[in-house]
């Protein structure tokens, strides 16, 4: 072997280390124990169960958490396909916010609930198409592209609402009822989130699309050379996230019965935390997955709800999510270091 070849090998390794996408690293190295989230959830329930049994250990806790988290869950689920393909879609939260604004605005301006919902969801698809165009055709890093889109959509939300809160549930009944109705004792938003979860579970685990996406996320060039339609799948994954994010926005407005221009952005961190933490759960191969995401979300939400019950101030949820994200990623980095030494 010549020195040149050694050098090539070394630079290839560096190249590889650099090009390895972050979601992939996080998912790979956090797989300390694929069921740790469920154990941790058990511990949290135990702690708050002992601390404040009367208020915490009730069905209403379960219902509150589930109903409150349905929108967050859908936002997190929106991230799964792009993350599988190694793409960050930072625009999901702003997309959610813009959809929440648009769906009520349209209904207050003479559109029927059905038309308003369809137009809004179509808007989400258009956002995904534009993201895909910028990422695939213009070859802009997905982080940057969707960060820009995020800002554009935040502006759109202000433009639609005129910067004000829009109030007034539309008279046509069903839009309101999907927000606060329930079937078989389970709130309707939870059913909707569960339905979306099932579809994404099928897509990621039981179709070729899911497998191709994971291949792209692992090694984009290797996937392309193995015949994977890389551009098409990356583009589709962003359209999917746009679509699902706008559905989350519609559901949010249906729950609240009102909308304001700044509803979306607070969903960004919880969604990413749930999806990335979820990648460490359930599946041993460290890939983002639907059930792991739901477990992670349940873990975070239960922890936050418990803290709020015992009188923690409102900012605790931001704090909790932020700490969870940083701790996860730090553990990932440590594991990466260990892995390199061996």
């Amino acid at each position: 072997m010549t020195l040149a070849e050694d050098q090539d090998a070394a630079s290839a390794r560096q190249e590889q280390a650099r090009s390895r996408s972050i979601p992939h690293e996080v998912t790979r190295y956090l797989a300390l124990d694929r069921l740790s989230g469920i154990y941790a959830l058990g511990v949290i329930i135990l702690i708050f169960g002992i601390w404040t049994p009367d208020t915490f250990l009730t069905m209403s806790t379960v219902r509150t958490i589930a109903a409150n988290q349905a929108v967050t869950a859908i936002a997190a689920l929106a991230l799964i396909l792009p993350l599988a393909a190694g793409l960050y879609d930072l625009s999901v939260a702003a997309n959610l916010g813009a959809a929440a604004a648009l769906v009520l605005y349209l209904q207050l301006h003479g559109f029927s609930s059905v038309t308003a919902v369809l137009i809004t969801v179509l808007g989400g698809v258009v956002v995904g198409l534009v993201n895909g165009f910028v990422v695939v055709r213009l070859e802009v890093n997905s982080f940057i592209a969707t960060l820009g889109m995020s800002s554009i959509l935040a502006a759109a939300a202000y433009w639609i609402t005129g910067g004000n809160q829009l109030v007034g549930k539309p008279s046509a009944g069903w839009f309101g009822t999907i927000g606060d109705g329930s079937s078989l004792g389970v709130p309707d938003p939870v059913w909707i989130a569960a339905g979306i979860a099932l579809i994404l579970w099928y897509l990621t685990e039981w179709t070729t699309v899911g497998r191709y996406a994971f291949a792209i996320g692992a090694r984009r060039e290797a996937a392309r050379l193995a015949g994977v339609r890389v551009n098409r799948i990356m583009w589709s994954s962003l359209v999917c996230s746009g679509l699902v994010a706008s559905m989350a926005g519609v559901l949010l407005t249906a729950e609240l019965g009102s909308t304001s221009p700044d509803l979306g952005p607070p969903y960004l961190l919880p969604a990413f935390t749930a999806a990335l933490l979820g990648a460490t759960q359930i599946k041993a191969n460290g890939r983002v997955n639907v059930f792991g995401t739901l477990v992670a979300l349940a873990l975070l939400a239960t922890g936050i709800y418990g803290l709020q019950l015992v009188g923690a101030p409102g900012f605790v949820s931001d704090l909790f999510n932020g700490v969870a994200l940083i701790v996860s990623v730090s553990l990932a980095v440590q594991a990466t270091r260990r892995d390199r030494r061996t």
């Binding site: 039981w206 497998r211 191709y212 291949a215 692992a218 193995a226 015949g227 191969n285």
Partner: peptide, 28 residues
């Protein structure tokens, strides 16, 4: 960098070039 998916398993690395062979009734 151009062929291997190191974190994917052996079967996944073998099948990737044509996954359609393993789809029956829309399920992989």
């Amino acid at each position: 960098n151009h062929a291997a998916f190191p974190d994917h398993d052996v079967a996944e690395n073998i099948s990737i070039a044509r996954l359609g062979d393993f789809v029956k009734a829309t399920i992989f």
